[in-house]
Design a protein around this nucleic acid. Sequence first.
DNA 1: TGGCTTTGTCCTGAGACAGGAGAAAGTCAT
DNA 2: ATGACTTTCTCCTGTCTCAGGACAAAGCCA
Lengths: 396, 396
Amino acid sequence: MRRMTARPANAHQARLLRLLRDGGPNSRAQLGDEIDLSRSKLAVEIDRLLETGLVVADGLAASRGGRRSHNIRLAPGLRLLGVDIGATSVDVAVTNAELEILGHLNQPMDVREGPVAVFEQVLDMAAKLRASGVAEGFDGAGIGVPGPVRFPEGVPVAPPIMPGWDGFPVREALSQELGCPVMVDNDVNLMAMGEQHAGVARSVKDFLCVKIGTGIGCGIVVGGEVHRGTTGSAGDIGHIQAEPDGRPCACGNHGCLEAYFGGAALARDAEAAARDGRSAELAARLEEAGSLAATDVATAASAGDATALDLIREGGTRTGQVIAGLVSFFNPGLVVIGGGVTGLGHTLLAAIRTQVYRQSLPLATGNLPIVLGELGPAAGVTGAARLISDHLFSPA
Amino acid sequence: MRRMTARPANAHQARLLRLLRDGGPNSRAQLGDEIDLSRSKLAVEIDRLLETGLVVADGLAASRGGRRSHNIRLAPGLRLLGVDIGATSVDVAVTNAELEILGHLNQPMDVREGPVAVFEQVLDMAAKLRASGVAEGFDGAGIGVPGPVRFPEGVPVAPPIMPGWDGFPVREALSQELGCPVMVDNDVNLMAMGEQHAGVARSVKDFLCVKIGTGIGCGIVVGGEVHRGTTGSAGDIGHIQAEPDGRPCACGNHGCLEAYFGGAALARDAEAAARDGRSAELAARLEEAGSLAATDVATAASAGDATALDLIREGGTRTGQVIAGLVSFFNPGLVVIGGGVTGLGHTLLAAIRTQVYRQSLPLATGNLPIVLGELGPAAGVTGAARLISDHLFSPA
DNA sequence: TGGCTTTGTCCTGAGACAGGAGAAAGTCAT
DNA sequence: ATGACTTTCTCCTGTCTCAGGACAAAGCCA
């Protein structure tokens, strides 16, 4: 079916759309208070938006002591697809124009199978969501991939954990399949955007969002905008050296943070601990499943297993060391910890906090909250929807 | 005498002034090509700027095949004061509106003597420059201090090496003394702005500028704008941990970069080497002067002293380790090395380069130039002039 | 001297916009 | 119910911004 193709005609319209999206007021009068425009001009722009169908006026709000206002809302039929491709699983969600999640699917997947196989699965999941009735089609899609992206073109570049994706025209291919605009970004950046839009980072202009999944990455937000770096690899902190001449890392260097922590390292350390007989708990789980994952460490830790707790604490300390350096360097107003291993929860957070507060400059940590992300697996897909929404809600 | 107090009336005028300042064209026609305005509107704005005296039209340019154009230039009488306060010396310079240095003084000074004493000296130097005929008065002044600054108010906060300055209203005090607008920033940020305006970082939008003086700091430029951080302490990389459980640092922590390198650490290490008998060259200089400074290491190194070279290499390697992490994190398009110890030159640069190229992600270093700053002591004062110029050339 | 190019000025009409006047639609006290 | 008051929204008018065409000025070159 035909989807919405209208775009705001000017910056005023774009600002209005974003205000409505981000939970601003919804009467003409109150919109006029937040946007620097006269009532008359505002009325004209809203009329034009109504004509294009980008917003609708449905019903009247309760009176606030005078004439009742019209409810101005974003097109209720607008649907965005948010895709978050991880190393071992994929999330696909549908949102409305306000970026509220209407349907969300998660499936295991191996990113190394390459873009063609993964896209088949993603399109299948999108079809399932459509079939469930939450959407008849999509007005736009955002997609996050676990590696650096040449942002303007929407193409992954030299992604270490997904070599088959190097140079694959993700944006173009997906846009063709879905028949709608598509934007591509690094998964960590999208998580940051998600937490910024609907999570703990609302109203914070400069913050870091550390995602600890299979690997470790960091979304950098400067002045409300994601910093992607010159080649799109900004935030790739997994291979910062945490220990001079330390453990060998898959990247060829020694002592990288990812050699000590992250889903992959944690699973490997847990298996070693199980085999060494350091943890009966982990050994039992290894016996049962044949291999261990980060989640096994989480459950063992919550069962009180000392070795599992030690592994988490040590990893948190290493991560905290690196974050401490970044905090001194960047002086953020907030640090968000998220990603798959947030199941490790407050043990991890406490270790990170201790290390950062100990090592960073007092001036930089003085008023610095370090918190867990509050959206969990919804952060990535929300950020993806936000990414394409920012694109759609900018002048054509 | 009365100074220029006019300010651009709108964003167009501000853009025109900055274009002229930054070496853009200077005829109406060519300005019109670079600014998105019609010839008519442009002519109106230039006429208004001519009226206020912010620009002047003097003479005609050579013909380019048709009617000769008028030379539009920034007010030739405009004078800016750039002040760069270091730990042990102070630079004061006078520039014209194009930020060309018309006069430059440097004097030794101890920042720990406090703001009152230092300002007395700065004002004295400014008076000397005035007396030399390069300026009759100042239209604005920029000043850099070696510590974090609460930028909007122009007040140093919790500066480790200059405790007496904490909370001192630098901006207000200097503005009163000089009778002109004043802006205050961290000295490292100003060095970055200087290299951006007239040095190696021209046309680079995202870069890092590492200043190795008595301490070590880093200017961060994102999208052409200096990133100052939430509390103004961004770029304070001297206390990033370079060695876990390493040398004790003056800040109370262990293993900080500044415990290993920077003017202070280098001087201390050199004295130790002289006393240990590891370097006859350094011992002779110590004998002579009673104490050693970073410059002594530089001269010893250029004389071929192996110990001095080792000290520089080791410091460069440590610094390179830290920068490598920052490069992975920030993914800049350029890294500039500057500050007092650039006298150590290419030995230092080579050590830093080796370490960064070895340790950072290939994608981040692939096309990354790491170069010495090209302005030397002029970087700070040029950046200071640029800071106040940006302020003066923005709509009132 | 005449064609051509570049630069700069003048003019007009279209559109952007603010703010006043006032209609519409409500609340609340009397 | 009535009138005073509030809030929301619309309409209108005058001002300002701005682009682009027409044209004058000033140069080059053959």
